[in-house]
Structures are given as structure tokens and as C-alpha cells.
């Protein structure tokens, strides 16, 4: 073993040492991020924002180029410019607005009734052990059923009207949010419950001051998942059981052989999904200030 000391050679003349023994020195110095942290962060942000916008724009540009040069079959992949003008036509005729409003109405009503009732029930089921034991197996069983599979049943019971479609969205959201809420409540650290009990908190105070806020982040994650599923399921339902809506627009355009209208529908659906996600992230930001 070489004793770890700091005498003579090494400390006084390290460079000379390196020349003699073939040792190399590695110097660690501040880089551009350290020398100009503000400027570096600004350039970095600019680059990231730019990439997030330029990459999709570039891809669409490439698509346009390929389509107009004839490399892409126009009947399957119409050029973005063709889709754009079809979009304008649909807006002008009012068909587009009707489709969006119809779909959004079903999504929003179904989502809110299903999601909010699931939060209330989830908080109760999660906090009362006997209720949880009694209901959990059934909830898991119902959760696994693909909700589109019960659409025919809903149509049979409620007919072709709005009820069946709104109910389908509500059921879809209900089970996702319910399972997430129950799980969130169960995993609240028992220590917080101890604090409540040692302060003599009532059942209601415990639910409001401890269980609800402690479970809120995961519950809101469930709400965000549910919003995506709501969009998916309403499009499916509108394919087969609607005469207005974005899903109907896509399906009908296939029947009529107008591919650019299909694309208008598809893009609109994805925009709704993205917007819902953004809104819900905003809600999370507002409701859970301690997690900011």
C-alpha cells in the first residue's frame, strides 16, 4: 500500500511528475452553463420550444411535399393543404361546428357526472374498510369490461338518443376514477390518520382535511386518464350510433369516400384530447398548490 500523504513531489510539482511517469491530469473547469447560467438557460429554453414547434411543422411540410409531388397516393393521404381547405368548407357549411358541439357535449356531461360521482364514492369506499371489502371485487370485475362492449346493451335500454352515449362516457370515466380514488385513499400514510385521531377529529373533518387532500394528486391523475378514455369511447360510439359528431364525421366520410374529411375529424379529435389534458393539468396546478 502507498501511504496517503502529501509530501514533496506530488504537492509541489504535479506537472513534472506527469511528464516523468506518464500520468495525465484532468482539469475540471466551469463550462458555458456555469459561466453564463442565465444566457445558457435562455438559449436552452429557446432551443426546446423551437424543437417542439419545428419538428411537427417540418413533418407536415414533408407530407405536403410528398403529396404534391405525387409520391403519396392522394386518395389515402391527401395533402395537408387539401385537408385545410376541406376543413374551411366544413366550417363554412356549419357541419364542423355541429360535429364538435355534439361530441363535446357528450364528452363533458358524461365525464363530469361519471368522474365526480366516482370521486365521492371512492372517498367513502376507500375510507370505510367494510365497504371496500364488500365492493372491491365487483368493481374490479366491472372495470375490466371494455365499455364499448356494453354499448349495444345501452342502446337496447335507452334507444339511439343522447342518453346511451352520455352514459357510456360516464361509465367509462366512473370506473377509472373510482379505482384510482380508492387506491389513493388506501395508500394515505396512516400517520396522518394518527394526527387526526390524536386531535379528536370527526369523521367528516378527517375526510375533508386529511383524506381528500392526501388522495387528491392520484385522484386527479385518474381524472386525466379518464378524459383520454372519454374521447376514445365517444368516437367509437359515434361510429355506429350517431348521426352527428366527430366520430360520425369520420365514419360517414369513409362511406362517402371523402378522405380529407376523415382527416379533419381525426385531427380534431386529437386536438380535443390534447386540450383536455392541458386543462386538467391546469386544474391540478390550481387544486394542489403544495405540489407546485
Amino acid at each position: 500500500m502507498i501511504p496517503v500523504t502529501r509530501d514533496s513531489g506530488a504537492a509541489t510539482a504535479p506537472r513534472a511528475d506527469s511528464a516523468a511517469g506518464g500520468t495525465t491530469w484532468r482539469s475540471i473547469t466551469p463550462g458555458s452553463a456555469e459561466l453564463d447560467p442565465r444566457g445558457y438557460a435562455r438559449r436552452r429554453r429557446l432551443l426546446e420550444r423551437g424543437l417542439a414547434i419545428l419538428v411537427p411543422v417540418g413533418l407536415i411540410g414533408l407530407w405536403q411535399l410528398l403529396a404534391s409531388s405525387g409520391a403519396l397516393e392522394g386518395n389515402y393521404f391527401p395533402a395537408p393543404s387539401t385537408i385545410g381547405s376541406a376543413w374551411a368548407e366544413l366550417v363554412e357549411s356549419g357541419v364542423y361546428q355541429d360535429s364538435v358541439v355534439a361530441s363535446m357535449r357528450r364528452i363533458v356531461i358524461g365525464y363530469l357526472t361519471g368522474g365526480l360521482s366516482a370521486i365521492v364514492l371512492g372517498l367513502v369506499i376507500g375510507s370505510v374498510r367494510l365497504l371496500r371489502v364488500a365492493l372491491e371485487p365487483m368493481i374490479s370485475a366491472l372495470y375490466t369490461i371494455p365499455k364499448l362492449a356494453i354499448l349495444p346493451l345501452l342502446l337496447l335500454i335507452f334507444g339511439l338518443g343522447e342518453t346511451s352515449k352520455v352514459l357510456l362516457v360516464a361509465l367509462t370515466c366512473f370506473f377509472v376514477v373510482l379505482i384510482n380514488t380508492i387506491d389513493a385513499v388506501v395508500s394515505v400514510s396512516p400517520r396522518y390518520g394518527d394526527v387526526g385521531r390524536s386531535c379528536g377529529a370527526s369523521r367528516w373533518a378527517t375526510l375533508w382535511h386529511i383524506t381528500l387532500p392526501a388522495a387528491l394528486p392520484q385522484t386527479l391523475t385518474g381524472m386525466r386518464l379518464a378524459s383520454g378514455l372519454a374521447v376514445i369511447v365517444i368516437v367509437g360510439a359515434e361510429f355506429v350510433a350517431a348521426d352527428v359528431g366527430l366520430g360520425f364525421l369520420v365514419w360517414n366520410s369513409w362511406n362517402l369516400g371523402v378522405p380529407e374529411h376523415m382527416y379533419v375529424g381525426i385531427v380534431s379529435i386529437s386536438v380535443i384530447g390534447v386540450m383536455a389534458n392541458m386543462i386538467l393539468r391546469g386544474v391540478e396546478w390550481l387544486l394542489t398548490p403544495w405540489n407546485r
Binding site: Y192, D194, V195, I210, P213, T288
Partner: peptide, 10 residues
């Protein structure tokens, strides 16, 4: 309590 007893959401 020992720790983790202060409510992070309040």
C-alpha cells in the same frame, strides 16, 4: 410524532 406528521397540503 417523530416525522412526516405535518400535513404537506396545508
Amino acid at each position: 410524532f417523530q416525522d412526516y406528521s405535518v400535513f404537506p397540503w396545508k
